[in-house]
Nucleic acid binder design. Structure first.
Lengths: 187, 187
DNA sequence: GCAACTGTGTTGATTAATGAACAGTCGCAG
DNA sequence: CTGCGACTGTTCATTAATCAACACAGTTGC
């Protein structure tokens, strides 16, 4: 799959770059396809060769970002189960740090109420697969614990991003690790 | 003439950018068309649609840079004669400061003996047009004075660039102004 | 109301960029 | 010497990007 025409990759990169730059300046609804095309320095028609409209572009950007996130989360677990280790947790907080701009835009922007939901859903599915119901979790409803943890984790990330990362990624990872430990999400 | 196809401008920019980045790393002779194309992220064939070879590219880059230099030098003199003012002199030293990387590459590189000559020639022509032979210059051979000043000025610039700009642009401009004053190049 | 704008999404003819070939030159190690 | 790898300069068919045009939908302001 490395055989996509160079021009296509370059064009898509330029569009996404322009889009993110604009997202950092103004809110989603006031961004137009025209603006994106101008900033990306390409013809407006070219935009429509790759995306249906700006909503489709946003969708694909989020999709891509989430795939990257999942890749980082699972970077350790290879053919093992995807139960997190402290290392994978640290990679993940560092990933958020690195993509601060993106998540900051998405979580802050009033025009993006759906983003938080999608992230929450992603987390629910991730945790549902990983949670083991032994020992201290016996007698609890699993789905309730899943929802509880997902909301908590998304909330923490949201807080961290929204407050411009008031603690370093490493500390956040340590704190999260302790919280996961207490709730039996890891080994 | 703003009606050149976008793709052409983008491609040429990418090629020049890649070329300058490589010039900052290695000397001219060890740079290949292949390397430039890879770094610019375009097909090698595309390179030959715009330039004959790497020498032609270098030539056009120098030409372009010199045009920019002339534009800055003459920025003041509009429909007046191009006799320099202190302001235009300052713009010029600031121009060199801004394009430090380019001139540093060109003047340092052993593979570029011709560059100093071209710059010298540019200066000779510029001065020849501006020098007024009144007052204290009476009785002197004009062409000798031109050559004298051109060498002196190029030498100063060379020294300044070569030694990584040991004094700020503003000071260099002041010093040069004093030297030009003494030699009646300005009003 | 409706005229002037601004942005949309689509069209078609044209042109530039692409990748994959090619034969040729050059330096160099076996 | 000789084959080998790296780079050159050029070709060709294919594909993507371009520009200018289009009809259309919403907003704004007179």
């Amino acid at each position: 799959m490395g055989s996509v025409d160079r021009r296509i990759l370059k064009t898509r990169e330029a569009i996404k770059k322009a889009f993110f730059e604009l997202m950092a300046q103004k809110d989603f609804e006031s961004i137009t396809v025209q603006l994106i095309s101008e900033r990306a320095n390409l013809n407006r028609g070219t935009f429509y060769l790759h995306y249906l409209d700006k909503f489709d572009l946003l969708d694909k950007c989020i999709e891509e970002q989430f795939n990257e996130l999942l890749r980082v989360c699972a970077a350790q677990g290879h053919d093992q189960t995807h139960v997190p280790t402290f290392e994978s947790l640290l990679s993940t907080t560092e990933y958020f740090e690195e993509h601060f701009l993106f998540y900051s835009c998405m979580l802050n922007s009033k025009g993006m109420p759906s983003f938080r939901d999608r992230m929450h859903q992603l987390m629910v599915e991730g945790i549902r697969d990983q949670l083991n119901m032994d020992d201290i979790n016996k007698g609890l409803n699993k789905e309730i614990l899943v929802q509880f943890m997902a909301s908590a984790i998304v909330g923490i990330v949201e807080w961290w991003i929204y407050n411009k990362m008031p603690v370093p990624a490493s500390e956040l990872a340590r704190e999260l690790w302790a919280l996961l430990e207490r709730n039996q999400i890891h080994k």
